[in-house]
Amino acid sequence: MFTGIIESLGKIEQLEKEGGNLHISVKSDITSALKIDQSVAHNGVCLTVVSIKDQVYTVTAIEETLEKTSLRTLTTRDKVNLERAMILGSRLDGHIVQGHVDQTAKCINITEKDGSWFFTFEYDPDLNNVTIEKGSITVDGVSLTVVNSNKNSFSVAIIPYTYEHTRFGGYKIGSLVNLEFDVIGKYVARMLELRQ
C-alpha cells in the first residue's frame, strides 16, 4: 500500500528485455534505504526490488504490466516518480493507493494560472472507471484531487512544489500517464454493476 506522496524522482539507468519481462534499473537517492524484495511504486506501479548495486537498484515488470501501463514507453534517462510502501501507523498524507494501475491516460491540456498549473487527462471510458468532483485520483503515483470530472476526462491542479518535485514538470500534450482510480469508488462502481 502507498499514499501517493512522491518521495523522490529516480532516473532510468538501464532497460533490459528478457522474454516478456523488462528489467528496469533506477538510480535514486532512496536506493541506500531499500532492501531486496521491497515494494516500490514507479510512476504508480508497484514493483519488487530484485537487486541493488551502489546507488542503482533493479525491478522487473512482467508483460501484463507493460501492456497495461506507461512503463512500456520508458527510455534511459527518463525520470520516474518513486514512493516506498507506507508504514502501518504512520500519517496518511495522500490517500490509499494500491500501486495497481487501472489504465493509462493522455495529457490533452496544460494551463498555467496564477502560479499553479491545471492538467487535463483523457482516458478510455469503456473500462468503466470513473472520477468524481473533489474525489481522489492517482496520476503516475501522485495522489491528487479531481477537478472538472467528465465521463472520459478530468483535470487536476498542481502546485509549484509538486510541479518541481514530480514528473509533472516534464509533461507535454500527448504524454502518457498511469491512472489508479480511488479504491472505494471502484468497489462502489462494481457493486452497482452487479445489481444490474
Score class of each variant (00 low, 15 high):
4 G>N: 07
4 G>M: 01
5 I>H: 07
10 G>Y: 08
12 I>N: 07
13 E>V: 13
16 E>K: 15
21 N>D: 11
26 V>H: 10
27 K>A: 13
27 K>D: 05
28 S>I: 10
28 S>Y: 10
28 S>E: 04
29 D>I: 03
31 T>H: 11
32 S>G: 00
35 K>V: 09
36 I>Q: 12
37 D>N: 13
40 V>C: 01
40 V>S: 04
42 H>W: 03
43 N>A: 12
43 N>Q: 14
44 G>S: 08
49 V>R: 06
50 V>M: 07
50 V>H: 05
60 T>A: 05
66 L>V: 10
68 K>D: 07
70 S>R: 05
70 S>P: 01
90 S>L: 06
91 R>E: 10
97 V>K: 05
97 V>W: 05
98 Q>T: 15
99 G>N: 04
100 H>T: 10
106 K>N: 13
107 C>T: 09
109 N>I: 00
110 I>D: 07
110 I>V: 12
111 T>R: 15
113 K>F: 07
113 K>R: 14
122 E>D: 12
124 D>I: 03
125 P>S: 14
130 V>Y: 12
130 V>M: 03
132 I>H: 11
135 G>P: 15
137 I>W: 01
143 S>N: 02
143 S>T: 06
146 V>T: 03
146 V>F: 05
148 N>H: 11
150 N>M: 12
157 A>M: 12
158 I>S: 00
161 Y>K: 08
165 H>G: 00
167 R>W: 03
168 F>S: 08
170 G>W: 09
172 K>N: 12
178 N>A: 03
184 I>T: 14
186 K>V: 12
187 Y>A: 06
190 R>A: 08
191 M>P: 04
192 L>G: 00
